[in-house]
Design a protein around this nucleic acid. Structure first.
Lengths: 104, 104
DNA sequence: GACCTCAGTAAGTTGACACTAACGTTAGCC
DNA sequence: GGCTAACGTTAGTGTCAACTTACTGAGGTC
C-alpha cells in the first residue's frame, strides 16, 4: 500500500491516472497532455507501474498504459478502517446517547 | 484532498492516526509511542490537523488529539471513482462479452 | 546499413520535508 | 514572583524526489 499511497500523493500522477482510466494511451500521448518533458512523464509512469496502479502493454516501439484500479484496493481498505468503522462507532454512540436522553 | 493525501502518505502520520483512532491522547502520550523527538511529533500533529484528519482539544496546558475520519471522505470518493466505477465498467464489459459468446 | 520514431535511462540540480537542538509560550502550583 | 510541566515554534541539516538535459536502445522503413 505504501507505494500506491506515495504514488497518488503526487498531483501529476493522479492526473495521469485519470487520463488512462477509461482507455489506454501511449507514453507520448500522455506526455503531450502536460507541460513537463517526456522523460518526467516516463518516470512518473515507472512509479505508477511499480506501485501496480497502471498496466503496460508494448506494441512495437510504442507502450500503451491503462489504469489498474485493483492497485487501489488495499488503500481503500485502509480508508474504510478509518471511515466506515469509525463512523459506525460514532453513530452507535450517538444512538445510545439519544436513547438515554429519551429515558431521562 | 491534496492535504489529506500528502498527510497520510507519511508512514509515521498513519501510525499516529491509528493511535488516536478510538480514543484521544495528549501530544506527550503520542510522542512517547515513538522514538523520534517530541517536536517531530508535534509537527506531524500540525500537518494532520491542517489536513483536517485530527481534532485538537486544549485542556490547561495539555492538548488532546483524536482522529477525524470525516477528513478522509473526499479521498474515499476519489478512490471510488477508480475502484467501484471502473470495476463496474469492467464487469459490464465482461458480461456483454459473455452474452455475445453464448449467442454465437 | 542508414535513418527516423518512440521511449526509457543517467547525471545533475533544485525544492520539499522529516528530523534535531535550542528557544518561546501558556497554565498551574508554591 | 519564581518554578515546573506540557507543548509549540524556529533555524539549520540531511535526504529524497521531481524535474531538465543529454544520451541510449529498440523497432520500423527505405
Amino acid at each position: 500500500m505504501e507505494a500506491a499511497l506515495k504514488a497518488i500523493a503526487e498531483p501529476r500522477r493522479r492526473a495521469i491516472l485519470r487520463l488512462v482510466r477509461d482507455e489506454e494511451r501511449t507514453a507520448g500521448e500522455i506526455a503531450e497532455a502536460f507541460e513537463v518533458t517526456r522523460p518526467a512523464i516516463s518516470q512518473h509512469l515507472g512509479v505508477l507501474k511499480e506501485a501496480g496502479l497502471v498496466h503496460e502493454r508494448r506494441e512495437g516501439t510504442r507502450r500503451y498504459y491503462r489504469a489498474r484500479p485493483q492497485g487501489l484496493h488495499e488503500l481503500k481498505l485502509f480508508l474504510e478502517e478509518f471511515w466506515d468503522e469509525r463512523l459506525a462507532v460514532l453513530k452507535e454512540a450517538a444512538e445510545q446517547e439519544e436513547r438515554r436522553r429519551r429515558r431521562g
